[in-house]
Design a protein around this nucleic acid. Sequence first.
DNA 1: ACGCAATGTGACGCATCCGTGACGGTTTCC
DNA 2: GGAAACCGTCACGGATGCGTCACATTGCGT
Lengths: 237, 237
Amino acid sequence: MARTHPMSNRQILVVEDERPIREMVAFGLRRAGFDVVEAEDTREARARIADRRPDLVLVDWMLPDMSGLELTRALKKDKDMREVPVIMLTARAEEHDKVSGLEGGADDYVTKPFSPRELLARINAVLRRSHAAARDEVVSAGGLTLDSAGHRVMVGEATVPLGPTEYRLLSFFMTHPERVYSRGQLLDRVWGGNVYVEERTVDVHIRRLRKALEGFDCDRFVQTVRGAGYRFSTRVE
Amino acid sequence: MARTHPMSNRQILVVEDERPIREMVAFGLRRAGFDVVEAEDTREARARIADRRPDLVLVDWMLPDMSGLELTRALKKDKDMREVPVIMLTARAEEHDKVSGLEGGADDYVTKPFSPRELLARINAVLRRSHAAARDEVVSAGGLTLDSAGHRVMVGEATVPLGPTEYRLLSFFMTHPERVYSRGQLLDRVWGGNVYVEERTVDVHIRRLRKALEGFDCDRFVQTVRGAGYRFSTRVE
DNA sequence: ACGCAATGTGACGCATCCGTGACGGTTTCC
DNA sequence: GGAAACCGTCACGGATGCGTCACATTGCGT
């Protein structure tokens, strides 16, 4: 929660076993003004995350000891590390990977081969979204304002009356808009992976969230995607 | 949420006469999200290629009736099958074979013994090359935008109201445009190979898809090819 | 022009999914 | 210590979408 790095010196952890690629990526990022930490396997990565607290983790899908996917899953289950945004680096371009990568908890993915420009764009997008909270800034969408410092969501001058879980849910949605999440994914990322609760519980909290947003005419942003999950989108259907 | 639908729309034909190996490979590929069709000789392989239209063929170098190399050569001579990428599976590691394998028209080769990871990497590399157009996160065609992360198709700022099946159907079409698919093929690839439904059901969903696209003046992209099946094409007839 | 086959179209029953209100148990805050 | 708030679960009912059928329409060959 405490701001540990100045804006111009954001720290990124690059997890990649192939040294040439890792160094090339690291070089590009340093050139772009980032502070880069490198790791070549997941064991090292976990250690660096624990002691350096990077602002973002860039992880290769294919790693020697454990796949990047599993690392991501593990991170998102750890309460201390759940907030760290993850971008998956993958050589695989199929839809399958996009889905499973995101199910594992990655905030975005970049397909190899990628241009430095594309990678930077993704990194900045994710940093802007997910770390706005950690920088005590606000995220706005469709009249809603997420004030993470104040742990509340506002519409104009009014505060939306939310319970803790509804706040976390809406907070997650607002930092991850325009994207469908299954009930299972939401349980992983909003509830935390280690607890077992019925998937239908998500429905109930969606209901409570909608009810809270109802008075502000914002409930339409929480959208049901039949057979898939839920999506937060300010674009009307 | 045990979905029966293929996660990736990619279908792979495995041609291998030794059953244990074939089944192991097929298992690994299915696990990785691919839709797998098996064949144990070149005769069967040609039949499967003709009726299933796989995205990629994985063929053993040594086959009982005709060598995989000859199958590959034959495929590349056939106008209908020339576009299908081929990966050769060979027990021989000599440089000589690599060369002749590629000369025969294979897009890549993998030397036995191989790790599943290596095989997947090769497959994805080849798929990426041959389906370069289909690998972007958002696929656009004729004003339509497929937003796979958001599980929706948009026209400008508006969302096309699609049911789950219609979404999968249109999603498949947009990633496989300009090509005719029979009702049977569509059932395989969109519905998932293991379900039995009437072929006419496809017609009904085509109808529903067209109706949904009607308001956006995009229904003309879904074209009927009498006696053959359906095709998605942004080229006007 | 005629007839057959293929495709378009509207309707219907059924299964599934999702919204919703209620309830018991636990935590939090006076 | 009590009340209020909150959470997870359940059951019920409505809504949605699916697969099939029957009938209309189109297109093709003769």
